[in-house]
Design a protein around this nucleic acid. Structure first.
Lengths: 222, 222
DNA sequence: CGTGCAGTTGAGCAAATTCAACGCTTGTGG
DNA sequence: CCACAAGCGTTGAATTTGCTCAACTGCACG
């Protein structure tokens, strides 16, 4: 496993999302930070869910590998996001660092103990779970739409989550985007070039995208 | 600690799922039952989320209507299931009775008050939310697969949730199944006839399905 | 005995995938 | 410094999958 050499946390927030600072600011919840390199496994699917994680910097993908090798990326975790909270004893899916990433690691038992004693911690835990639930449901809605709608929704989501600037720096490669959207890399690529043809977006580099025509995008998104 | 005396109100369980009986067995949480007829709206999307619901008998669908008219059924609720718990003030999606349905209705504020006072109620609330989260994630996994896999998974899910008997009585019409699986009714229908051709299932009537060849189904499901 | 609804079936079509090739960037070793 | 391999992204052609549109069946209900 991994060694948690303890320096302490940075408390960041999810822009545009709920403010979870306090959930991890409790005295007895301070954990340790740990760094991962590109594609490093943070926890595996089916592994004991003894820790909960918070992204300090970098980015994380949560994914399941299906028996036939297909990958399903369930969510991306950006700085400030908490992940790894589970119902059962085991992690339902794996989590990997996309690029070099710093993670705050906290003992799950400590959180649960705190929740038993402090109703407001319990309420925050609950709020976090329900907010994750909504995210997952939005993801389901995404998956029944057309390729173009999925890509546009994804870009919109990234803009919202990175602070609202229309110029975004995608932390993940095309393969992760494709597996998140339930498409192939080819379709993602084609759709993006098609969006540049519409003058809806600009592709500065593969990772750096600028959303130009908000009207076109809004109309495509829904 | 006068919490859990069983002034009971139709306490059923979700076969194969968590046991939520006790969550609704608290004195101050007893609500009232209410009946709905076919396609009756239990709550609308965007409506104030002042109540939480539990299916006594019948079946419920949770759905969103997209701007272009497409329907997305997020989940089906069978007897014993709780639904309508939300993070915010509003219901994120609508809920409708599929056929004639009896529902236990409880004030949300009462539950939240109880959760504030009783850590174990809070823990149950939390467990429920996380379990819903897992269901939603499984749904996402479903939606990236082929039509045949989706239909087989759906049938498998229904078998599991109705007690494990390979002979199931679907409470919902094809349109609901299609909108749950992200397919069209035609594709659902075709896939099912194809499965009968494989001798994998038998279609007694449109609603009554018997799963015959477990090996074929397992192999298709994943 | 029609009418309406739910489900099935068929033919043609559009969308996304598959398979394959190619370009660009990056890192490595001579 | 250049050559070359590896990884990532893009593009093209052929194929497959599921959708659209339309007809038709069976059944329940007036």
């Amino acid at each position: 496993m991994q060694m948690y050499i303890g320096a302490n946390a940075g408390s960041s927030t999810v822009p545009g999302g709920l403010d979870y600072r306090r959930l991890f600011d409790c005295d007895d919840l301070i954990g340790s930070t740990s760094t991962y390199e590109r594609n490093g496994e943070i926890h595996g699917e089916g592994e004991a869910a003894d820790f909960v994680y918070k992204v300090i910097s970098g980015a994380v993908r949560s994914l399941k590998i299906l028996s036939d090798g297909r990958r399903q990326v369930n969510s991306f975790h950006l700085p400030g996001d908490i992940f790894g909270l589970e119902a059962g004893d085991e992690h339902w899916c794996a989590a990997e660092a996309i690029g070099p990433t710093k993670i705050l690691v906290v003992r799950r038992a400590a959180i649960e103990r705190a929740a038993q004693r402090h109703p407001d911690v319990a309420a925050k835990l609950y709020a976090h779970a329900v907010s994750e639930l909504h995210r997952a449901q939005e993801h389901s809605v995404l998956l029944i739409r057309s390729a173009q709608e999925r890509v546009v929704s994804f870009l919109g989501e990234m803009v919202r989550r990175t602070g609202g600037s229309p110029s975004i720096d995608l932390p993940m490669p095309r393969q992760d985007i494709a597996d998140y959207l339930g498409l192939t890399i080819e379709t993602v690529s084609r759709t993006m070039t098609q969006l540049t043809a519409n003058a809806a977006i600009q592709i500065k580099t593969a990772r750096r995208i600028v959303l130009c025509d908000r009207r076109v995008l809004d109309e495509l998104e829904d």
